[in-house]
């Protein structure tokens, strides 16, 4: 278990309990279970207390937790016959974006998502989930495919943002994002998005301009990272806690603002403490959202999607 900074007291208690049990295993005559169980209870209470009212900044840390299930885990857990389709037909295949044909409850769909990677090797391979123009152009191609064959599109959002690199800029990062957002708004099939970790700015919007948008309980979705915002507006990157607060980037605030449609509950202590349950809960949400959209005509899907965004923000926090 990777503990976050604010979970340190918890790490101590859980560490003690573990030590105690190891001692018990070494000395058969020592009865440690009672004490260890007491520590377990204490740890449980502390975990509940820590996660009862997570501050926006702590939510950012949880949303970025390395042990959180990533796009690949959801694809493995929820879809069958996943057939990755690669490349943008222009330049390259972007490994930061997974995409392809798959079945969800036997229904053929197109699934697209940012993949951050799970260890050093895969993280580098996936460029930490930061897509280049090729990634967005692959997504555009796949959305076109879905549109042509009437397949719903499911997108899984988990990116710190689009990659800020020299080549990415030269090959038209902005144009690729703009076209991907435009494609989201143009396809005549159901498009649903789930923010599973970080919804980083334009890089997220390019996939998340959907008919239905859900967020995991401790995921975030923001115009800029709290660190970036702090260094610009506070001229001090250390003010990220204040920035996280001010930006209203939590699932709970976004629902109040009418930007997202539903929140998917995470296990106690965050998705990283119960990856399997989390994947299942996301599956249920996808099922519900697909059902809500089934039977809608292509024109109605496009019209509703556009209207949804035109109406967005008209009520502020009172929405």
């Amino acid at each position: 278990m990777n503990y976050l900074e604010f979970e340190k007291p918890l790490a101590e208690i859980e560490g003690k309990a573990e030590e105690l049990r190891a001692l018990g295993r070494a000395n058969k005559e020592m009865d440690v279970e009672k004490e260890a169980a007491a520590l377990d209870k204490k740890a449980d209470a502390l975990l509940k207390d820590l996660y009862k009212d997570l501050s926006p900044w702590r939510k950012c840390l949880v949303a970025r937790h390395p042990d959180r299930p990533h796009c690949k885990d959801y694809i493995d857990g929820l879809f069958t016959e996943f057939t990755p389709l690669a490349g943008d037909r222009n330049f390259a295949d972007d490994h930061a974006v997974m995409g392809g044909l798959a079945r969800f409850n036997d229904q053929a769909v197109v699934v697209i998502g940012h993949e951050k990677g799970s260890d050093t090797k895969t993280r580098i391979e996936r460029n930490f989930g930061m897509a280049r123009p090729e990634g967005y152009r692959k997504a555009i191609r796949l959305m076109d495919l879905a549109d042509r064959f009437g397949l719903p599109v499911v997108t899984l959002i988990d990116t710190p943002g689009a990659y800020p690199g020299k080549g990415a800029e030269e090959r038209g990062q902005s144009e690729a994002i703009a076209q991907s957002t435009a494609k989201c708004l143009a396809i005549g099939v159901p498009l649903i998005s789930v923010v599973i970790g970080e919804g980083g700015s334009g890089g997220a919007v390019a996939f998340a301009t959907a008919n239905r948008i859900a967020m995991l309980e401790h995921s975030i979705y923001s115009v800029i990272s709290p660190e970036g915002c702090a260094s610009i507006l506070w001229k001090d990157a250390e003010k990220m806690r204040e920035a996280a607060e001010a930006l209203r980037l939590t699932a709970q605030d976004l629902q109040k603002l009418g930007v997202i449609d539903r929140i998917i509950k995470e296990p106690m202590g965050g998705a990283q403490r119960g990856p399997k349950e989390t994947v299942e809960a996301v599956g249920k949400a996808i099922e519900t959202m697909l059902k809500e959209l089934s039977g809608k005509k292509p024109e109605a899907l496009v019209k509703d999607r556009r209207q949804k965004f035109l109406d967005m923000g008209s009520k502020g926090l009172a929405a």
């Binding site: 708004l185 923001s222 930006l247």
Partner: peptide, 19 residues
């Protein structure tokens, strides 16, 4: 930035305008 996520949502909104 001072409009947070709502400023981000202008990306799809203005794209609808273009369309």
């Amino acid at each position: 930035m001072q409009e947070g996520i709502l400023s981000l949502m202008q990306m799809p909104r203005t794209t609808v305008a273009v369309q």
